[in-house]
Write a protein that binds this DNA or RNA. Structure first.
Ligand SMILES: [Mn+2]
Ligand SMILES: [Mn+2]
Ligand SMILES: [Zn+2]
Ligand SMILES: [Zn+2]
Lengths: 141, 141
DNA sequence: TTGCAATTGTAATACTATTGCATTAATATA
DNA sequence: TATATTAATGCAATAGTATTACAATTGCAA
């Protein structure tokens, strides 16, 4: 659920510190709702009467991504919090081009097929990435 | 097969001109072999005793991508020629992290599943994107 | 508390991408 | 083949994105 305290625990479990900048970036991501750039995130934090350096935002996002707490949307480079961090393995994205919503999914069947494709081509698959681009329920008028 | 003349025809069929910069960019993409940035492409062309403006490279790539002649690798932003332009529809990528080779695939079964996922989530899918990241046949020692 | 290493801030810089406008060159037509 | 048209390119300026090295700060364990 990405509560402030669960993130604190997750960080400490990895030997990382629970710092104010890290808390602020996570707050920003949660409140902004749609995928955001490092600069967007900094802007949001500034609007809350706080300050954070651009470089710090980049670095915090890097850490969060490595922990699986946030994702970087491949084609846009924008970040958003993972909504299903409890499910390990491949997370796919449904991306609405109208409202920029990103919904995550986890589909084992898809993984099976992708592994089969890799095998057939002689690839040793380490990771994969799926994005479905379209229009979400709420935006189809 | 992306021969020089087939591209000329494809361009003309769209009311576009067959120009020297466009031919040079395609030559560069074909010869560089692995995904390349606009600046990489410009550098290659310069090394062939030719010149091309950076902006032109960007614009040419945009046209080529819209024609389905090249792809932009989503996570890196690098460009490479489409190897199966004759197959319409979704092209997926196998990406080797060692030699940076990109192999394309077309898998209807994958499309079916992705459409099902979209439907289940109430999305109207317009397009999708699949990338399998790993190590290619030649790079697995 | 205090000390120390991890983290953040600062400043400089490199890289990537876009825009408006002047110039050039590809093609259609005479 | 010469000429007119305008798409395409070049140029120059600028904006946006990302990274680096090093100094200052801060979280947290002792
Ligand atoms: Mn996720
Ligand atoms: Mn293709
Ligand atoms: Zn939507
Ligand atoms: Zn390889």
């Amino acid at each position: 659920m990405n509560t402030t305290s669960s993130i604190a625990h997750l960080l400490k479990a990895q030997g990382l510190r629970d710092t104010q900048p890290r808390r602020m970036v996570m707050q920003a991501l949660i409140h902004i709702q749609s995928p955001a750039s490092p600069y967007d995130i900094q802007k949001w934090i500034t609007a809350q009467e706080n300050t954070i350096n651009t470089v710090t935002v980049y670095r915090v996002l890097e850490v969060f991504e490595s922990l699986g707490l946030v994702h970087r949307h491949p084609s846009s480079g924008l970040y958003f919090p993972c909504s299903i961090p409890e499910i390990k393995g491949h997370h796919g994205f449904l991306h609405c081009t109208k409202c920029h919503l990103v919904e995550e999914f986890h589909n084992p069947e898809l993984c099976v097929i992708e592994n089969a494709i890799a095998k057939k081509a002689g690839f040793k698959a380490k990771n994969h990435l799926s994005e479905i681009v379209g229009v979400c329920k709420g935006c189809v008028l």
